[in-house]
Design a protein around this nucleic acid. Structure first.
Lengths: 188, 188
DNA sequence: TTTGATAGCGAACACTTTGTTCTTTTTTCA
DNA sequence: TGAAAAAAGAACAAAGTGTTCGCTATCAAA
């Protein structure tokens, strides 16, 4: 890709994210984004059809990275119920979050965090689902798999949100313990 | 309150909700709301400062009702771990939902459901929290109360969303069983 | 280093939406 | 019935959107 395009794209993303830290998505205008990114109006629309498309691109970019990195981790380890607990994907994700990879925490704590949370949940659901399929087994005979996948991923993401809102007072290790306490009893 | 005001307010709410069933909140304009509600522009702004205020009023109205009705139910019964399980507030809420009180299901399944889900979670958290305080006890010594309150309310609301998305194939009784299966092991 | 292609700029535009102001008409309820 | 309140409707400025145009700057490859 052309260097100019890369720079423009990066500038727009950067501007967009810094604006998201200040006010909610709906109150951000394209004009403000291009002013802060210091690019022309035409240029913006050459890259993204609308503001919504920009948001979507940002989400895919971000959660694509964090989930695929977690996916690599599952190759060697796996989900909780495997016994190899401390190296679970959840622990891995929490560490990524604490290190604030890609400043993802800003997005999860901004006014428009709901949008990002749903992306996070969906990506995580896909990952957990693929783990179950990979292991070709039911986790719990009494409950439908998709219910459990949803429960686990939503619980994790909502825990992260609770953590951030509470100013991240706990360590990833503590959080991991909390999560295991509410999830492991369900897995056989 | 003046009859005219009541009628206007009701017409606006009704129009707004029917539009929410068709497209996302952000793509609904004030113009469309007043056209469908058949009220003048000035009238709309006499009732609500902005479209956001209308949304807020709708949420408060709706979840205020459903939660206070659940609150009444806890006077006689209580949360799960009390033993009086089948008459828990969760079961009560699920029944309300299935009966589709106030057409609340439309809001929870519309494109903008995220907005309503957060309201639902927050209202429910308040309710669960007040139950714990009322009973003056810790549910689980190993885990912070506010973490558990958050976990329980989020799990419930996300389960409802999962249920709706899956076209509500389960009965409230089945759902209640699922929920107890993932929550009761955590409570002492 | 030249060169053709591509990306970006900036001004102008038609258009939509917003929120306000005004006057006139209708409804309420005391 | 009559004063007060509410709604209608037209008109408005202001702000934002998405597109077009002609021009300039930059790139990557020969």
């Amino acid at each position: 890709m052309d260097r100019r395009q890369q720079k423009t794209r990066a500038a727009i993303f950067q501007a967009f994210r810094s604006l998201l830290a200040e006010r909610s998505y709906s109150r951000i205008t394209v004009q403000e984004i291009i002013d802060r990114a210091n690019v022309g109006r035409t240029t913006f629309y050459a890259h993204f059809e609308t503001k919504d498309e920009l948001l979507k691109a940002l989400c895919e970019n971000l959660f694509g990275h964090i989930i695929s990195s977690a996916k690599d981790c599952t190759h060697t380890h796996g989900l909780y119920s495997d016994g190899s607990a401390p190296e679970s994907i959840f622990c891995h994700l929490l560490q990524h979050l604490q290190e604030n990879d890609n400043n993802i925490l800003e997005l999860l704590s901004c006014e428009s965090s709901e949008i990002f949370l749903r992306y996070f949940k969906d990506s995580l659901s896909g990952l957990i689902q693929s783990q179950f399929v990979l292991q070709n087994r039911h986790i719990n005979q009494d409950l439908p798999d998709d219910f459990l996948v949803n429960h686990i991923s939503c619980s994790f993401v909502e825990m992260v949100l609770w953590w951030i809102k509470g100013r991240m007072r706990q360590t990833p290790q503590e959080l991991d313990r909390y999560f295991r306490a509410v999830i492991e009893p369900i897995l056989l």
